[in-house]
Design a protein around this nucleic acid. Structure first.
Lengths: 185, 185
DNA sequence: CGACTACCGGACAACACTGTCCGGTTCTAC
DNA sequence: GTAGAACCGGACAGTGTTGTCCGGTAGTCG
């Protein structure tokens, strides 16, 4: 049998591939079916047994933390530039992530009660606090808008996304909502 | 045994009381534990068997429709006055209902896919369409706000409520959000 | 008073998800 | 090549929810 068809998900060296396959499958299913998708479905989608999934990620939150760590990396990158436009870039990425994966928000909310040490809120808050002042100074964001207001707007966007019939509708509705929130209308 | 202690939830004449007890219990548990609270928990809370619950309400949505029919009655009453203030009254009641019972929104969303004939959205839309124009004319609501924008704002409020740690926090956050949406800030 | 009807209530089977366990396979070191 | 360690994968028991079923009870009518 040619090497291409050899099973690669057995033995010690397969652990990294299996881990990656689980993360990929979890990202897809979190996006498609929500944060509470059965873990067994993720294992099946990844082509591994449930034992493998539970060894790599003992709880749903452990898995979600690993999946959405990428989101924080993306957000850090968007905010990294600094200056008056950094906040807008951060916000645009956050909106896109939320429309694509509402489970990201569900994870942060769930972690608040189940894993207080995780502090997803605080990581976001820090990024916003770092970029918002320059945007306000430059008039990109109305005076009086605080860091918590941005987190509040994020939660509103979540409400739109989870009640929208389709992702495309969600995108359109979020755009409309942003226009309503913008005082320069 | 005195009549006061006599069991009243047996026999044909008990049906109305049982039905009412189920509706009361369902309203409480929908509010406390969300739309997906186990039906068996509602039966227990109402002090009836599961058979009784399923006879009166074959599905979760049938039960929810009956529970939240009261909400529509309240909304109709708020909108009934007419004039430029009717919309504000309607909106205030809708906000209060949403903070108190986020399951109301979950029901409307769920019904869109599972029971399209129900049209909770359309009943709301009709009430808004009836009251919004006068409010816009009187300057109570900015020009350019459409009926769908109000439904969008409702979904945003839902997002705030379901991500808030407590009902009191939800109320405060909704108030802040309304201030942000108001262009006269 | 007796029989009939409507209805109650809990038990129960079916189903789904979680988390664990162990036989079996693959890699690695010697 | 061989032994041992690491790891895979599916089966399995435990748990919780759903929806049904039937023995038994309360009201009603002749």
């Amino acid at each position: 049998m040619p090497p291409a068809a050899r099973r690669v998900n057995r033995g010690p060296s397969a652990a990294p591939q299996n881990r990656a396959a689980i993360l990929d499958a979890a990202r897809r299913l979190f996006a498609d079916r929500g944060f509470l998708v059965p873990l067994s479905a993720i294992a099946t989608e990844a082509g591994v047994g449930q034992g493998v999934l539970y060894r790599h990620f003992p709880t749903r939150l452990d898995l979600a933390f690993a999946v959405f760590e990428d989101n924080f990396v993306e957000l850090e990158a968007a905010a990294a530039g600094g200056g008056p436009d950094a906040f807008g870039a951060l916000w645009a990425v956050l909106l896109e992530q939320t429309v694509r994966e509402a489970a990201f928000v569900e994870m942060v909310v769930e972690a608040r009660s189940s894993a207080p040490a995780y502090d997803g809120d605080d990581r976001l808050r820090e990024l916003i606090a770092r970029t918002l002042p320059d945007a306000v100074s430059a008039g990109r964001v109305p005076a009086g808008v605080e860091v918590d207001d941005v987190l509040l707007a994020w939660r509103m966007v979540f409400g739109i996304v989870v009640t929208a019939p389709t992702p495309d509708a969600a995108r359109a509705h979020v755009a409309r909502a942003m226009a309503l929130l913008d005082p320069r209308r």
